[in-house]
């Protein structure tokens, strides 16, 4: 009896010490092959392709908020040079037209923002302008939503609420075919 059977002496557990190493190996593999991408951006719905250009001359000038960006990234808003910092406020005032100015949108549903750029405009400037215009609408939606439902506008809102707000202030941004003065 003094002699123990070898089975008793043997530790019947699997050695889990190397498990950590295996897991580390996997972890490092994933760290190397993956990227934490900032998959964020400005979502845009492009208009369907049509051969003929849409005719915006039929629109009343008072309802069109024209934004031109030239190849030097300078802005011309409704015929006047401005800075991108003022664009958001200008657009908001134009769309809402709180004082019923005769040269601004009749009502938010009729407001149209027309954006035109040059082929030489830098993408950075273009996106900054687009961002400001989108921000103007987002702020207007927020304000309206606060007024109506007491919560800021968000994608998690009930669909009916969102639709009601978007019907009242629709986001209409038309992009004209760019000019090609400054193509590099």
């Amino acid at each position: 009896m003094a002699k123990k059977s070898s089975r008793d002496r043997m530790n019947n557990e699997i050695n889990a010490g190397s498990m950590a190493d295996i897991a580390f190996l996997l972890l490092i593999f994933f760290l190397v092959t993956t990227t934490i991408v900032e998959d964020k951006g400005i979502t845009v719905k492009l208009p369907p392709w049509s051969e003929e250009d849409p005719d915006i001359t039929k629109l009343k000038t008072r309802n069109v908020f024209s934004v031109l960006v030239n190849a030097q990234d300078q802005l011309l808003v409704r015929g006047e040079p401005t800075r991108v910092e003022n664009l958001r406020e200008d657009a908001k005032i134009f769309i809402r037209n709180p004082y019923n100015a005769p040269d601004m949108a009749e009502k938010p549903t009729k407001a149209i923002i027309s954006l035109k750029n040059d082929r030489g405009t830098s993408y950075d400037a273009y996106l900054r302008v687009y961002n400001e215009l989108k921000a103007a609408y987002n702020e207007l939606w927020d304000e309206l939503s606060e007024q109506k439902y007491g919560v800021p506008y968000s994608d998690d809102m009930p669909f009916a609420y969102k639709k009601a707000i978007r019907d009242e202030i629709p986001f209409v941004l038309s992009e004209a075919e760019p000019t090609s003065f400054g193509e590099e």
Binding site: L46, P47, P48
Partner: peptide
């Protein structure tokens, strides 16, 4: 510059891929 971006956008529109980010 916007030139190449515009060309890509036009091609996307022609292909019916309208949701862009």
């Amino acid at each position: 510059t916007m030139g190449i971006v515009q060309d890509v956008k036009t091609e996307l529109r022609k292909s019916g891929q309208l949701k862009v980010n």
